[in-house]
């Protein structure tokens, strides 16, 4: 049943010094639908592709606002993300209560990193099966952090995780130099384009399957869904009918 003797649990090193259970947990992240995050000098943006189980079901939750100054996007096991997000909400409130200070993003990221690490060193626990992008603004400005099941946390300028996210990352790497100076709207467009690049050929971004989260200096984190993002989709991806875009809108 097992591929080898060393992948039964997360407390066994392989002869090469790898921990297979942790690596398998990383695979769970790749099963989740793609999420993208970017920061500029003034803003942090998250964009996510939502899946629905079937035609008539609702779409999954991919972006979770945590505190007024930041939120997360997840790829992988949503229930693990819920545990982590509840923990993050508690910690964020504790910081506001104790110090009257919005929790620094580096701090909260490192706390969930430490929690995830424990799961990789003790028998009877399993690593979290979810990857997170943590985006928002604190006293030091806008930030984007990536969290992995191994407990690795890194501050990024831009990042994409989840199924087919390599395509998104390729887009991000190609446009890396533009992000820092981007305006709020430009940044949102970059995030949507990166998201689009990782879609399968026959898929489109629609107001149903796309979520956005935006935070800025002096702008609280807010999630945008449904009709709220129609314009952004419209202006980012000028449809083949391009020129008659205006006319199309009248029709609907």
């Amino acid at each position: 049943m097992f591929r080898n003797n060393y992948d039964n649990d997360s407390v066994t090193f392989s002869p090469q010094g790898r921990i297979f259970q942790v690596e398998y947990a990383q695979e769970a992240v790749k099963q989740g639908s793609v999420v993208v995050g970017i920061v500029s000098k003034t803003h942090a943006v998250l964009a996510a592709l939502k899946r629905n189980a079937e035609e008539l079901s609702s779409y999954q939750k991919k972006i979770i606002p945590i505190d007024t100054h930041y939120g997360i996007a997840l790829a992988g096991l949503a229930s693990d993300a819920r545990v982590l997000s509840n923990f993050m909400k508690q910690q964020s409130l504790a910081s506001r209560l104790t110090y009257d200070r919005p929790i620094p993003l580096s701090e909260i990221t490192s706390r969930i990193g430490d929690r995830a690490q424990t799961n990789t060193q003790h028998y009877g626990k399993r690593p979290y099966g979810v990857g997170l992008l943590i985006a928002g603004v604190d006293q030091k400005g806008p930030h984007l952090f990536e969290f992995q099941p191994s407990g690795v946390t890194q501050e990024m300028v831009a990042c994409g995780i989840g199924a087919r996210s390599q395509m998104a990352r390729t887009y991000l790497e190609r446009n890396l130099d533009e992000f820092e100076g981007s305006s709020r709207e430009e940044l949102i467009k970059h995030a949507l384009r990166a998201l689009k690049d990782s879609l399968a050929q026959d898929k489109e971004l629609t107001i149903e399957n796309t979520s956005l989260g935006v935070a800025g200096v002096d702008e609280n984190f807010k999630m945008y869904e449904g009709q709220e993002i129609a314009n952004w989709l419209e202006t980012t991806f000028e449809r083949p009918e391009g020129g008659e875009g205006e006319g199309m809108e009248v029709d609907s």
Partner: peptide
């Protein structure tokens, strides 16, 4: 395959793998 186990020649392989 398990930490805290000695091999017959007195080694703890899991520690050696950690070194890797």
């Amino acid at each position: 395959l398990s930490n805290s186990v000695f091999s017959p020649d007195g080694r703890n392989f899991q520690v050696e793998y950690a070194v890797k």
